[in-house]
Simulated assay, not measured.
Amino acid sequence: MSLPCQPRILALLMRELISEVPHMRRVNQLFGCDPVLAAQLMECANSSAYRMAAQVRGIPQALTLLGERQLRSLLKKAQAGMVARPIAGIDMGQFARVSQDCAKLARSLAGRVRLDGSVAYIAGLLHGMGQLVLHQTQPERVAALAAEAGLWDPRRPRVEVRHWGYSAHHTTAILLRAWCLPAEIVAAVQAMEAPLQDAQFDPMAGVLHLAVWRNRVKVSGWSERSMADAFPVDVALALGIDVDVVLQQEATDWSQSMY
């Protein structure tokens, strides 16, 4: 399956990797801007070819494992996605921005509860990949839900479950498992919509829940009163995170750091 990435990010990565001495911090930052490219990187790094299946937990580790030649090969394959049809119902630029904002906030919240920031970042960045696949493969079925709940509406997953019996994030978890990503990332995405329902609470799923919820309501334009009324306070309490930290905090600018 060929999914489109952002042409500008792909071009910048290609230019960086053909230079005599690639700036790997910059390469790291660019992969962290595009969920499609990051997914392809993580799938490659966790493949059997490198004998690291289900062990590569973040972008920096993946870049260390793959050499420059392998990275250039990966990007050339990504160019195939540039000729793919646009995905109906999804603005890919907005999708990438929202995914990165979720990743940044997830990493920031993970730091507050002493969880692995790289894992939180990649889970937040890739959490929406199921939406891309469903929109590409089942456009009519997905479009039927738009009138009831838009793509970024916090209520959308519940609408999906009511109509389909599962949400797009369950599809994401299936994809991540098929790509041999670490079990902790798969489990966090699988449980992120209802992290308190599992017998044993997964803090990473809770972090994802709060980060994704915060960005959904932000993109949906909810008022401060609406956000406060609907805030998932039970998840915040389970993590020991103050409500105001999530509602008032802008995601930390990690553009100068390693993801």
Rank of each mutant, 00 (worst) to 15 (best):
M1V: 08
Q6D: 15
Q6I: 15
A11R: 10
L12Q: 15
L12T: 12
L13W: 01
L13K: 07
M14A: 15
Q29F: 13
Q29G: 12
G32K: 05
P35Y: 07
A38T: 05
L41S: 01
N46C: 03
S48C: 13
A54H: 10
I59W: 04
I59N: 05
L66Y: 05
S73T: 14
L75G: 10
K76H: 14
A80C: 11
A80W: 11
I90E: 02
A96W: 03
K104D: 15
A106P: 01
S108V: 09
A110C: 08
L115I: 05
Y121H: 03
I122H: 01
H127Y: 04
M129I: 02
M129T: 02
G130Y: 07
Q131K: 12
L132M: 05
V133L: 14
H135F: 08
A149H: 09
G150L: 06
L151W: 02
P154I: 09
H163L: 12
W164T: 08
W164Q: 09
G165M: 00
S167Y: 04
R177T: 08
V186R: 01
V189D: 06
P195I: 03
A199F: 06
D202F: 03
D202K: 02
L208N: 01
L210K: 08
R214Y: 02
E224C: 11
R225H: 13
A230S: 04
P232C: 07
D234S: 11
D234W: 00
A238F: 05
L239W: 04
D244S: 15
L247G: 04
S255T: 03
